[in-house]
Design a binder for these strands. Sequence first.
DNA 1: TATATTTGCGTAACTGATTACGTAATTAAT
DNA 2: ATTAATTACGTAATCAGTTACGCAAATATA
Lengths: 317, 317
Amino acid sequence: MNFFEEVGKVAIGSRLRMLTDKVTEDGAQIYKLYNIDMQPKWFPVFYALTQVKEKTITELAKEIGHSHPSVSKIISEMLKKGYVKEAKDKTDGRRNVVSLSKKGIAVSEKIKDQLIDVNAAVEEISAQSQNNLWEAIGEWEFLLEQKTLLRRVIEKKKERDSLKVEIVDYQPKYQEIFRSLNVEWISQYFTMEESDYKALDNPQSYILDKGGFILLALYEGEPLGVCALIKMNDGEYDFELAKMAVSPKAQGRNIGFLLANAIVEKAKLLGAAKIYLESNTILKPAINLYHKLGFQKVAGKPTPYTRCNIQMELVVK
Amino acid sequence: MNFFEEVGKVAIGSRLRMLTDKVTEDGAQIYKLYNIDMQPKWFPVFYALTQVKEKTITELAKEIGHSHPSVSKIISEMLKKGYVKEAKDKTDGRRNVVSLSKKGIAVSEKIKDQLIDVNAAVEEISAQSQNNLWEAIGEWEFLLEQKTLLRRVIEKKKERDSLKVEIVDYQPKYQEIFRSLNVEWISQYFTMEESDYKALDNPQSYILDKGGFILLALYEGEPLGVCALIKMNDGEYDFELAKMAVSPKAQGRNIGFLLANAIVEKAKLLGAAKIYLESNTILKPAINLYHKLGFQKVAGKPTPYTRCNIQMELVVK
DNA sequence: TATATTTGCGTAACTGATTACGTAATTAAT
DNA sequence: ATTAATTACGTAATCAGTTACGCAAATATA
């Protein structure tokens, strides 16, 4: 057991499995002790049938949390033992209605003492424990219901990745990476257009000198994401969020969010009231990101880009 | 989940299994999230190999608590991926010494971040729980190590059965049951002898009137066990414990122990210093029972029974 | 009313573990 | 120096569950 303490919580799955095995192991013996000819795996189905007169395969499966083929197999085994009987539903020919036979009912009486004793044994173990396993399982079931382990791990990863990301201002030495990261995704999904070349080849004159900004995301020092804030002054919008690009090899590290967020903060700092952007709905992660930042779909703006099929705006608070 | 609350602790095995499944389910996804080409089931073996340079199949199996065929299979799968390399031990040709390959070591570096995040996620769940699952598992492992669940259930059963057993004094109406219970086991294992008939047909004159006693065990009112205490007065022993019989259908309900114990108490009450008994070693449960009560093997007494091949005595304290 | 979709459930194949068993190598015992 | 027992480990069979799939019945839709 020492092994698991060392590995850490990653092994909680393995450890749970091993405890499960140990607990289950004695199951068959316990039935024998009470002279009950039953397999442990039958029990959930059997118990469910003692609580109601009859149930269909699917109802049983849902109740005990198994797949229906599993229940189907268990029922056919119990059928062989004569513990249950089957009948087709008269009004719905698909449904296989299962109920306990007389023999099954007799067993259910016999089994009651066993339930009492096992309960007592488990309670005894609980009484000797600081942490109640039964309750702990219940809490985990609840918490995993709310948010799966996977989702929690994804969040932790994001948190940790965020710490490694540093957002920095544009400098001339970053011109090449600003260009190449954008060319990479644009030419993957669309084709480069005239306006693209203008901005990417001359960020200084086309963006910065006109009162815009460019930010870069460094991941452990390496520039892996870029985003520009282009001055608009069209009366309605102050800035356009554009030329946002994150290296494919850095996807899933929250860089996009941190970058876009920083750009919005920058705009806020500059007193912007409304930010505009153009994108394409095939870029789902990007659209989701904009949405998360508070951008709403709008329409009607003229655009120089043929690839644009969605326009969004953010009202800065 | 409601189902399990209702069934009671009997279902702790099933419930554990379902939680295990839920936790394990996300495992494969999590590896994918970190771009690591590894199956969750490989992890314990993989981790063990990161801690030491090399290990044999059996050593690995022992460390992670799997069977050796399981490790054997996992290693052959990891071999295909090129994560490990095998080598025969030079001094012991049976041993298959396994170690991480360069590729494996690279993966072990890559995996560290994942371990950190999963650990953090599990800690987060623990922090939101009243009962710590991880600790609870540890406690169960420890307590089951000390005494298995089966053993605990057996004890609970005995306790409960004991409450249903009542030890009562012999009355003439019990003569038939006293006779039949004894005839049943004697003729099953041996053949009835002259001395048997004498005592069983006339308990009043051959046992009670000579200063002996007979006790019966009633299980829920039904007489299912009998035992006699026969006056000896041979200078050494005060009484002989004899004609002990428990109905086969009531075996395993602790009746024998309660009955014999009551007989010994009775003898004590009557001021006995030493009690004697005769039996046969093929009656193992009986011999065990006598032993548990403190009887020790002796030899040399003459006996009228051909079936007797062991003699025991109890020095009453 | 005809057609498409959904539902119930049985069969088959797969999965990740186990136990059972066989073989070869090593170690212990006579 | 044999012979017996133990150990290492691979293969096969088994087990308790799963997912995949297909058929038939019921329900929804056009």
